[in-house]
Design a protein around this nucleic acid. Structure first.
Lengths: 124, 124
DNA sequence: AAATCATGTAAGAAAACCTAACACCATATT
DNA sequence: AATATGGTGTTAGGTTTTCTTACATGATTT
């Protein structure tokens, strides 16, 4: 729980998130439009990202590079969130297994880029 | 070693460092003038701090609140750096012990403020 | 061929940051 | 007591970074 807080603490500005993810500002904002990340805002309306956000962005980046579409990616995250937040309360066991299998299948294909998914886990 | 890199990765802008340390920009810049921290600079000359920098700033803040003077603090850090970087190669055992004792004495008195020294260690 | 998707780019405005300088109060030094 | 020094606040003017909005574009989908 405390770890959750750390992971979701808005520490990073656009600048560094671009570097950490190797995404353009345009891309990051576009993904935000689609509610894949929801960075905190400063009083002056500047985006502040958490390490968790960066992880998500890296994940999105990978999916896109594999040719997946935003719509699919949104679905995927929606299901994942539902699965983890509700802890399968409302999902049948079989459906949960299906979601997980789907994820694993995606995860397998990831092997590129400089800052890889999971690498950021060192920071929290 | 890899941990060193993580700790010293310049991720944070002035903004958040002010919040994390509860120091004014003026104060942080002043401490930089005295070479207690040496934040990285972006191409556009903006300061970028590492988590390590934040730790140092919190330490400086504590020392100052205890009435220690910059000169003393600088000495303290100089010795500490010498001690840890050279691993006591050039320092006699007794001197090293003296430095450490001195540090411990300082560390004892620290018990205030919202974000305490050591708390940031969770981030790396 | 027409529509949609993900991204680039440009414009104009606002926010955040920079350096330099001066002011000030508390403490130290003479 | 008078003066000097140390740490911080504040202001000014300038530059960088980020914001939103809008339009353009090449690659896929339909």
């Amino acid at each position: 729980m405390s770890r959750e807080i750390r992971r979701s603490m808005p520490l990073l500005s656009m600048n560094i998130v671009m570097q950490l993810t190797e995404l353009s500002a345009r891309q990051i904002r576009y993904y935000e439009e689609h509610q894949l990340v929801e960075p905190h805002r400063t009083e002056g309306n500047r985006r502040m990202f958490s390490l968790n956000d960066v992880d998500i962005l890296l994940e999105v980046k990978d999916y896109l590079e594999q040719g997946m579409k935003m719509a699919k990616i949104k679905q995927l995250f929606a299901k994942k969130n539902a699965a983890t937040s509700k802890k399968a309360q409302d999902l049948s066991d079989s459906e949960l297994r299906r979601v997980m299998r789907e994820e694993m299948r995606q995860a397998q294909r990831l092997k590129k880029s400089s800052i890889r998914q999971g690498d950021l886990s060192r920071f929290y």
